[in-house]
Design a protein around this nucleic acid. Structure first.
Lengths: 176, 176
DNA sequence: ATAATCTCCGACTTATTTAATCGTAGTATT
DNA sequence: AATACTACGATTAAATAAGTCGGAGATTAT
């Protein structure tokens, strides 16, 4: 297993489609999820979290969906991770240093003074990781992906979302 | 919750007692756990993992226990984390990029070529964190702690382990 | 205006992982 | 040879993550 869960992965992949939409057009969580063959409900939940974090804005209703709340350049990888994983720290100190068979009922003051040395080590590692994630943004990632994915497919994807949007509100009678 | 579990915390706190023992004397998992008021069985399991990773060496039998397999300077924080957490990566790529409603049964070759851009970002963050953990070792940590903990307490702790070791093999009849 | 369709959103269920425990096997000391 | 202690692997209990379900609200088409 890995430290980060699937939420981070799904969220970033999904955001890429908003970054590419570019013109500020909203795309629904349903479309984004189905295009990637992911659980619609789960992706929707991730978007909800990202909206609370201020990364995306939602539009309700028939032609609704999500769009980036700010330019892709200003959305860092760290922003996304924190949004969907909830800013969980690398390490949570349980203050083991205040547990000692030699202490009486109450631990002496010095045992809890300052930051635990082990905690400090982990805080530095955490900071290093976060700094790495903070210095990369969604726009960079989007450009990278654009260089790798064939132009034909990018166009086909765009068309798919376009068609999907156009079909909104037609009802089931036109499809079944 | 946090990324690292309690195992990392317990393991590092416990190793500090081995680093301080210094003279290569073995200390039992039981003593180390009870001194810190931690679960004896759980700490023992962590030591087992660390032994498999080659960080500590075990001695079985009545006067047995664990001691550092190499100088504390040569045991990095990363070594300990990997030993008890099992080298879990920061991110495990599920190759979402090969999932696409536009693809047929089999995804096209280009979709899985090279490293996924999102995965690459996470690999860099992972490397940053691991580099941070790798550059700090147990000896440094031990010195830091020694500067913070009163000398009186360090002596008392040493005595406790000493007494505990001396009492080995006396049986219950001398204690009850 | 009204009904239908689609959206977001929070509560719930299930599955996986972590933390801790229990029982067994083996070893050095007395 | 008996004993008291150790390490060690398998099992259980608690916590977390992943995914699901149903409802409330908004917008569009009729």
């Amino acid at each position: 297993m890995s430290q980060f869960g699937s939420a981070v992965e799904y969220a970033l992949h999904s955001l890429l489609y908003l970054a590419r939409a570019g013109d500020g057009a909203a795309r629904s969580a349903r479309d984004i999820a189905e295009f990637q063959e992911l659980s619609v409900d789960y992706v929707a939940k991730l978007f909800t979290r990202m909206e609370k974090a201020g990364l995306v804005t939602s539009i309700e209703g028939l032609r609704g969906g999500f769009y980036l709340a700010r330019p892709a350049e200003e959305i860092s990888m760290l922003d996304v991770v924190d949004a969907v994983e909830g800013q969980k720290p690398l390490f949570e100190c349980r203050e083991v240093r205040t547990n000692c068979v030699l202490f009486d009922e109450t631990a002496p003051a010095w045992s809890g003074r300052g930051v635990c040395g082990i905690h400090a080590v982990m805080l530095r590692a955490d900071a290093a990781m976060r700094a790495s994630l903070a210095q990369e943004n969604l726009a960079q990632l989007s450009r990278h992906v654009a260089n790798v994915v064939p132009k034909v497919h990018r166009q086909a994807a765009n068309d798919w979302f376009q068609d999907r949007g156009a079909a909104r509100g037609q009802g089931a009678r036109n499809r079944g």
